[in-house]
Design a protein around this nucleic acid. Structure first.
Lengths: 218, 218
DNA sequence: CAGTGTGAAGTTGTTCACAGCA
DNA sequence: TGCTGTGAACAACTTCACACTG
């Protein structure tokens, strides 16, 4: 009976839990700042302490990326950073269109953290004459009608919705109609799209609810 | 034996699950938009469909707010909205200070959704001469040094951090030193604070990780 | 029936306990 | 001893099954 070499046990797709997925970027940022302070290694207990979670949980999270720690020493920061970036695909460029160049839209356009994580916003759209044809962060703001044409010229799978709440659904409909595969909805409004479209909502009121709840009973 | 009137069975504190807490604001927004379309009642199955979750889960979530649905009819939108707003304390004003008037900070200051949910930003701070003493959304931008004085004049328990990542920790330290009870950290950087301080991180990279993960394997 | 409401079962995620290693 | 790594126990959350109600 041969069953030695447990080669790459978890690399096919052990279906990473969403909580793990959501914690990894936090670790990454932490590791990068440590590396800038010229640290080389870190142990799961130190990480756990920084994030106020259980060390074993950290170990399990990191194991999904395939990195191996060295006992007594910990994990190599360089390896970890490399592995997480790979794992989360932060190094593979993904083009995106942005809809709604209001305060939030502008902030995202000017923020270069997105680009550093692989998201390149290639065009942005609005419907207000006041912003159309202005330039934000080097990008011309197009009238929404031009989305159709541009979506054929520039390949992009991701649409970012930063419109007012009551425009979210119609914007989403448009994105789906013109072939977007994923929608990042910064509106608190829930949107309805076909099954296979990926939707992720970034809703600050969810976070606000948590803050207020904890505040009042402490 | 008298045990009729099951008065307010779950109002003391049945320790609402965090997932529930995070879904409620979504429901609220949905209900408000339905109400604007002159709808009066809604059933949990319709809600469930809009959010792509199980109807029973909706029922349980709503039960935490104390509302009762009427069989065959559903829940009264007006009652629901009132109850959720009460439950989440979105109608109780909570003062906040904001730190870091960059793109994101400005967007938050100009966004009136926060105020509509009870958060009143009463002052904002920065360290860059270029923004200090400018006015954003009717608020003067103060130099950080004045935080100490202002925190004594204006009561506020919540501090919002929208500084660059590498300033998050020192800002948090300052907030704690001057008595803030809660911190809303919009930085991806994890921050270390004393046990009893409430910290909530709004980290868009967590959402980004989810999007990219789902996109690549679909 | 078409809905709410709720206890039980099932699933997912986290923590514990301990084996292995330098 | 201090750390990784992992299977087992536990806790939290979600879904199921069904009683109940107009």
């Amino acid at each position: 009976m041969s069953e030695p070499q447990v080669e790459a046990p978890n690399f096919i797709n052990p279906s990473v839990p969403e909580p793990t997925l959501r914690r990894l970027p936090g670790y990454l940022c932490y590791f990068q700042s440590l590396q800038q302070n010229h640290l080389k290694y870190i142990s799961s207990s130190v990480i756990a302490h920084a994030f106020k979670i259980d060390p074993t949980l950290v170990t399990k999270d990191l194991s999904y990326t395939g990195v191996k720690g060295r006992t007594k020493v910990g994990y190599s920061l360089e390896t970890l950073i490399e592995a997480i970036v790979q794992f989360l695909k932060f190094n593979q460029q993904e083009n995106a269109f942005l809809f709604g160049v209001g305060n939030l839209g502008k902030a995202l356009l000017q923020y270069d953290g997105l680009r550093q994580h692989g998201i390149k916003i290639v065009a942005c759209f609005d419907i207000h004459p006041k912003v159309i044809n202005t330039t934000v962060a080097g990008l011309k703001v197009y009238p929404l009608q031009e989305f159709r044409d541009l979506s054929r010229k520039i390949p992009a799978r991701l649409g970012v919705i930063t419109t007012p709440d009551n425009k979210a659904q119609e914007t989403a409909d448009l994105l789906v109609a013109w072939g977007m595969k994923a929608i990042w909805n910064f509106t608190p409004q829930s949107i309805k799209v076909p099954e296979k479209i990926v939707v992720v909502n970034t809703n600050i009121y969810a976070d606000l609810a948590v803050i207020l709840h904890r505040l009042k009973q402490s």
